[in-house]
Design a protein around this nucleic acid. Sequence first.
DNA 1: TATGAATGAGAATTCATTCAT
DNA 2: GATGAATGAATTCTCATTCAT
Lengths: 214, 214, 214, 214
Amino acid sequence: MKKREVLTSIKDEKLIVERRNQMIKGAVTLFKEKGFHRTTTREIAKAAGFSIGTLYEYIQSKEDVLYLVCDNIYDEVRERLEEMVVDRYTISELQQAIQHYFKVVDELQDEVLVMYQEAKSLSKDALPYVLKKELDMVEMFKVIIEGCVENNQFALTDKEISLFAHHLFVQGQMWAFRRWWLQKHYSLEEYTNMQLDFLLKNFSFQQLCEGETV
Amino acid sequence: MKKREVLTSIKDEKLIVERRNQMIKGAVTLFKEKGFHRTTTREIAKAAGFSIGTLYEYIQSKEDVLYLVCDNIYDEVRERLEEMVVDRYTISELQQAIQHYFKVVDELQDEVLVMYQEAKSLSKDALPYVLKKELDMVEMFKVIIEGCVENNQFALTDKEISLFAHHLFVQGQMWAFRRWWLQKHYSLEEYTNMQLDFLLKNFSFQQLCEGETV
Amino acid sequence: MKKREVLTSIKDEKLIVERRNQMIKGAVTLFKEKGFHRTTTREIAKAAGFSIGTLYEYIQSKEDVLYLVCDNIYDEVRERLEEMVVDRYTISELQQAIQHYFKVVDELQDEVLVMYQEAKSLSKDALPYVLKKELDMVEMFKVIIEGCVENNQFALTDKEISLFAHHLFVQGQMWAFRRWWLQKHYSLEEYTNMQLDFLLKNFSFQQLCEGETV
Amino acid sequence: MKKREVLTSIKDEKLIVERRNQMIKGAVTLFKEKGFHRTTTREIAKAAGFSIGTLYEYIQSKEDVLYLVCDNIYDEVRERLEEMVVDRYTISELQQAIQHYFKVVDELQDEVLVMYQEAKSLSKDALPYVLKKELDMVEMFKVIIEGCVENNQFALTDKEISLFAHHLFVQGQMWAFRRWWLQKHYSLEEYTNMQLDFLLKNFSFQQLCEGETV
DNA sequence: TATGAATGAGAATTCATTCAT
DNA sequence: GATGAATGAATTCTCATTCAT
């Protein structure tokens, strides 16, 4: 899927990147605080540090800002996820990947929340592109899980692998979108450990059973 | 927490209920389609079958409609959840409860989605009340899980029980809010079975271990 | 050609007519003074005697105002033209019709000018409808001229009749759109007489020739 | 009337002429297509082949472009009209002049139309100057007609001569501004011949009458 | 109670013009 | 001389809310 272009009348590529970053930064703060719809374009321009006229030199409509924000957050999360090095495909590595992912969500929780709550306001045009990015990230988990399965760490059918990947992904997001309750009652470490514990028991059980059957 | 009152200038209680139900019904359809912010009060009035003037006889602001809608959806989901009869607190009963809950989510998925996506637009005033309702529902799961633990079906700490309840609750919602992917690849039955399978293995493992240690 | 509808959210038909008339009256004055593009919707609303919000209850876009104005002016001119009673189809009657038409243009010259100068700003959608109205008026002249021809007042081919009708029509408008010069140098009467004189000589000549050839 | 100056910050006279010609050429195309008000300065600059900054080096305001365009079109039309050589002041020469004028209008019809429709948007400042140019052109016809009268080709009072000149001028423009109808039904030749026929009958009649009275 | 016309603050977007490079 | 990024006043249009009938 080709990247959806946001049109601009500015020619200086470097400037486009710079201004859009300012814009995104300001917008995230505002969206976080009051949501996309309650944020005005003037507020976005102001938060970005330039005039409303300048804002519109870099985008075509307010929705473009939302798109840029979502796009950017996905890239940020993804980039952070790609830090994980997984090569041996053991349960232990999966565990580390999950820990890493939860940590990333925790650090970028405002962004994750914004993306989560506002993505639905994207136009029919932009939505598929953003959903594609989400699936790409889910895919990263899928690859790890598949690796573990191939590596006989545990047994899962293809359908189970996919669902499990989604499941993990949502479990991470959950730390952000239910923070109003979770973060009042658990530390990130507690949350991570409890979720991991739950998952790993499962796989240990599998291994145990296999061991027994032998 | 006392129910947040939505003021009205109408005396006839029965009329209030009737009109509000019309209003909620119309609003859910509209919110589902275009979201709270993109829906106008005129559209809500029209969908409800009366005039904009009448709408404002029964509410004080547009946000009241959102509140009524969210409130109503929670009540509806809750009502459906209360159909479950749990008295013996066995794993099998927990399993049935989950199955029932997933079915309810599936049947009310539009409503669940609306609530899920629009609740954040509630005012600081109304939000706590709605979150309270959500916690009440989570509590229903907690009670069942606690019962099972007391009943030695499996062992969990208090913190684990709470998290598990939330986890289940989100897993159900997930069927609605990720339907763009899940429902393309799985039937409700598949989804339910796979999730249950995963949970139950876990508990079976516990029982197995316990059995062994004895 | 069906009348192009201008959408409104108002139900009271009488009110629509009343408000639109206020709107048209105000708009004509403003368009006359500064043209369509330099007139703002707020000015139109103010000139009409109501708020900008009310203005938009009766139209959908600024262009609707222009359409209503043009439409209205055509109707007004046409109505005035229909006062002419032509039944004997003599040169003398044609002459009277022309005199009447020139008088109407003179009386409605602001309107004629507005229509003349702003019609081109109508959307591709509305333009054909307005041009149709113009042709309808040209047709009125054509009918008279045709009658005269059938009545042997003078001889013209069909193509000549059409052109002559357009010619007369433009000659009338000319009194309005070149008023910056014409009305400084001629009275309406002078203008009318001179133009008539010119035309009638022509037809007298024909009759004379025919007389001679016989 | 002195030529209205359009200020510029550029010293190089040749460059001024060159850039302005580019500008005018681009602007005519755009004005033709969407009118003065709907054309942006950026579009003009682009069509002219240079930047918006450069555009403003050669003019002071958008309206200057309109003025330059109108001025230029008049010059162009005038230049073409001056090709006509009239020296004997006969009806036949008048006829040729008219034919030539109609041909010029036909060839420059886009320009004539632009001038016709947009001149009214000129400021109070520039308008008189442009109207003066128009009168100058009318004057060219007046000179020919006067010559003919002096030459006893036909008899007209001074007032009639002026009106006749305007009349001819408008008749030519009419071919452009009513092209939506005329050019669908007549070729330029037909149109010219019919209009000439009409005029000349008139004068022939005069001559005939004069002949008779002698 | 019900209606729907009226209101106007507020929002997105445009675009002529400027000015530093 | 040329460029094009920056500006913000101005404009169109929307829509929640009110209130007279």
